[in-house]
Every structure is written in C-alpha cells, then in structure tokens.
Amino acid sequence: MEIGGINLVVLVASLMVAAVPILLAAIGELVVERSGVLNLGVEGMMIIGAIGGFIAAVTTGSPVLGFLGGALAGAALSAVFALLTLVFLANQVATGLALTLFGLGVSSLAGQGYNGIKPPHTGDVPLGPLADLPVLGPILFAHDWVVYFSIAMVAATWWVLKATRIGLVLRAVGESHEAAHALGYKVNRIRLLAILFGGAMAGMGGAYISLVRVPQWVDGITAGAGWIALAIVVFASWKPWRALIGAYLFGGISQLQLNLQAAGSVIPVEYLSMAPYLVTILVLVIMSSGRGRAGLNAPAALGQNFHASR
C-alpha cells in the first residue's frame, strides 16, 4: 500500500489523529451556532485550553486531568463571551475576535516557564483483537481514547440535535429567538449552556494539540486551528457528520503535505504548507456559490443578540 513513498495505512491512521483538535472544536462551535450564537473566539478558547490542559497535566501527572483542565479553561473563557454578549448585548463578532486576541495573550503569559517540558504520555488504547485486523486495525482501532471520544461526540451531538427535546429547543432558539421566547423558553439560558459546551470542546481540542500532537508548550501552538474549525462548521452546513468529513478532509491534507515533504516532493515546502488552508478557502467558496443550499441550513437567528424587551 505505498504510493510515491507514502504508506496509505499510516497516512489514514495519522489523519484521524491530526483531525481531533479541529473536530472537537468544530462540534462545539456547531452546537453554539445552532443555538444562534456566532462565537469567533474558537482560536482563543483552543489556545487557553492548550495551556490550561498542559499545566493541569504537568502538575498532576495525569493526562486525563489535563484534558479536563483544558475543557474547564476553554469553558471559563467562553463564560466571558457569554457574559458580554448575553448580558451586556455586545456585538458577537467583535467580542469573538477580542476573545481570540485575549486568549492568545493570556496563554502566552500563563505559559511562561512551561517551555521545553514534556507532558505525561497519553497512551494508545488498542481495541483488543480488532486492532490486529490487517489494514483496518491500525487505521480505526489502535488510537488513544480522545480519538474515539471525538467520534462518539459527533454521534452524540447528532442524536441529541435530531431526536431529543433539548436538541429541538436548541434548534428552535437558533431559528427564531422571538418565537422561542413567545412560547416561554429561556433563550439566554439555553444559549449560555451552548456557549459553555462550545468553550469546553474547543478547550479539549486545544489540550489535544499541546498534550498529544506536539507534545509540548510553545507560544501560538494552535496556529490557526480554531479558524479552520469555524470554516468546517460552515462547510458542514451545521450538520455533525459532515463536520467529521470536513475535519478528516483537512486533517488528511495536512498529513499528506507532511508526507509529501518527507518523500522529497519537487513542489516547494511553502506551497505544501499552505495547501490545507487553500483547500479550505476553495471548499468554502464552492459551498457558498450554491447560495440557496448553504444559506438554507444556516440558523436563521445566527449572530443576533436577544433581549426580552417586550
């Protein structure tokens, strides 16, 4: 299974790992946007999660507590966003951008003294005999637990949105907050919970970068992953399983370019490194050129603040 010096099994297995941070963040943001809130601070919440998770893991020596710490840090930062947009009715776009800048700065400050340390190892959890299957085994069943967790979260989000009452209310709030309010639903409470969930997921995604992918702490470690996650939500037209496809597509391309570099491709490294971002832009352009379809699926109240004035 080798093409041009690239082992396909290794490539696919590694793309699943590469996609985890953006997949977690994208699922979180998808829920937030389904509730009608546009939080552009994903990058900030991810990097806060990255340093928060790193500190927690290094201090306690437990990678699981590290991920928990990352989720808490992300949720804490998203609570600031919730306070500003839900209570003080600040503009969501501006607040989200500020959140990213704030997160980058704070993470850099908190990360002083953590450079060059190795975090505790997050081991693979091979799923018994399944992991010994040829080809499929290494691709699907020999990863660390966060990989399985991210896929389980996609399934759970899909099921909750589709089949449960809380999911229905969440979609209703994102569709028309006035109507939801008229029926007696607590619009801002539901949005607060969605925002906190989004923050926790982004934080976990960030922690995966600093604890597993890299694994160490450097300033600006997320390197734009939060923005990719935002793009993937639109790419997925706010549907969980499509977010999975989007994340794997992006993860695949970033792995491919690494492998191409290693295989001594004639294309200059710079072009290969920018490939994933170019492809993301290209896909978004194609998606939104069919205006009707992508537009149809966007939550109608996305980005609008709600105040129960009447």
């Binding site: 009452r165 028309s176 109507a179 699926n297």
Partner: peptide
C-alpha cells in the same frame, strides 16, 4: 413570531 421555518410541523407543535 411563533413558528420556526426550518423545523417541521410536528416539531413546531411539540415545542
């Protein structure tokens, strides 16, 4: 102001 365009009739009634 009290119906949700992107939801089905049954979902709207349930809400």
């Amino acid at each position: 102001f009290s119906l949700f365009e992107a939801l089905t009739v049954a979902e709207n009634v349930a809400l």
